[in-house]
């Protein structure tokens, strides 16, 4: 019953060092039982780190069993890497303990802030792209990678506003962070699409300007549609719908640039039955297989 030790297969050091270039699904408590009973063939699972920063109980019970035979990505949503506050060292300690317990193939976080003055807002908030933010983000990532003893992936954000103080393009900012810190890129294709629509940019050009050679994982998710004060489309990164066709198209383009990548289907709201998400993960694998076929031809 105790969960003090990692699953045996992992303790033997059998875990591969990276996620497989396959479709993965965000692991939700609603699906624990289904997954353990049916053992679906899924490339990997991803969990939000903060949900597992509790001592014991059902979450750890299920994650240990599911993780024992499936690659795992741990995805943080609370480090506030883009924030003005110093990094929360107690939170880093919790992360280090969680990573030691589950030995995930990947750890990733966001280019955003979520805490200020000690208050946590539970949202991924935007920062201006300029030298001050760049220095801060690089310092924070250096510290995270040093404390955790591993390379992290940084996710490109979905944003709704821009800052007058910005002096750099977002993709250039991310390229600079990757180059200075050595971190990898978690390419969120839905975020790229949402952000480019929201700011009147060309999503393909944005992708080409990113440091794609550093890609370690791709995220796909659904978004909601709204309009801004001028009636222009304003997309919201809701994680509450199937992946949109425009995002699938952009994903195929991304795969043509990066080659096959571990690709996660993210769904955090209006969560459907597990097979619906598994089918989307399978659809991503078909896109990757089609790319491989074209490459070979």
């Amino acid at each position: 019953m105790t969960n003090a030790n990692p699953p045996r297969a992992l303790a033997r050091g059998a875990a591969p060092a990276t996620l497989p270039a396959r479709g993965g699904v965000g692991l939700k408590p609603e699906h624990f039982r289904h997954i353990l009973e049916t053992r679906p063939d899924i490339g990997f699972f991803e969990v939000h780190a903060e949900n597992y920063m509790v001592a014991g109980g059902a979450f750890h019970h299920h994650l240990e069993r599911i993780r024992a035979d499936t690659p795992l990505s741990i995805h943080g949503v609370g480090l506030s890497i883009g924030g003005e506050d110093p990094l929360d060292e107690a939170h880093l300690d919790r992360l280090a303990a969680l990573l030691a317990r589950y030995r995930p193939e990947s750890f990733s976080e966001h280019l955003a802030w979520s805490s200020h003055g000690g208050a946590f807002f539970n949202d991924l908030l935007p920062a201006p792209w300029h030298a001050g933010t760049l220095a801060r983000v690089c310092d924070h990532i250096d510290r995270v990678q040093e404390r955790l003893g591993r390379r992290m992936l940084l996710e490109n954000p979905a944003t709704y506003v821009e800052f007058e103080a910005s002096t750099m393009a977002e993709a250039d900012f991310i390229s600079e962070v990757v180059s200075r810190t050595g971190c990898g890129l978690l390419l969120d294709v839905n975020n790229a699409y949402v952000t480019c629509v929201n700011h009147g940019r060309d999503a393909r050009a944005y992708l080409r300007a990113l440091p794609l050679a550093a890609t370690g994982e791709i995220h796909l998710a659904g978004h909601a549609r709204d309009v801004d004060a001028a009636g222009a489309p304003l997309l919201i990164d809701s994680h509450g719908a199937p992946v949109a066709q425009a995002v699938w198209d952009l994903y195929a383009y991304a795969i043509s640039l990066t080659g096959p990548q571990p690709t996660l289907i993210e769904r955090d709201n209006d969560i459907p039955a597990f097979p619906v998400l598994a089918a989307e993960a399978h659809a991503a694998e078909i896109v990757m297989a089609r790319h491989a076929t074209l490459e070979a031809a």
């Binding site: 201006p128 709704y160 506003v161 821009e162 800052f163 007058e164 103080a165 929201n198 700011h199 009147g200 940019r201 801004d228 004060a229 001028a230 222009a232 304003l234």
Partner: peptide, 14 residues
Amino acid sequence: GLRAWNGSDPAKRF
């Protein structure tokens, strides 16, 4: 300090 690409009121976006 917020802005939108099309000059629309950023309040709705915020």
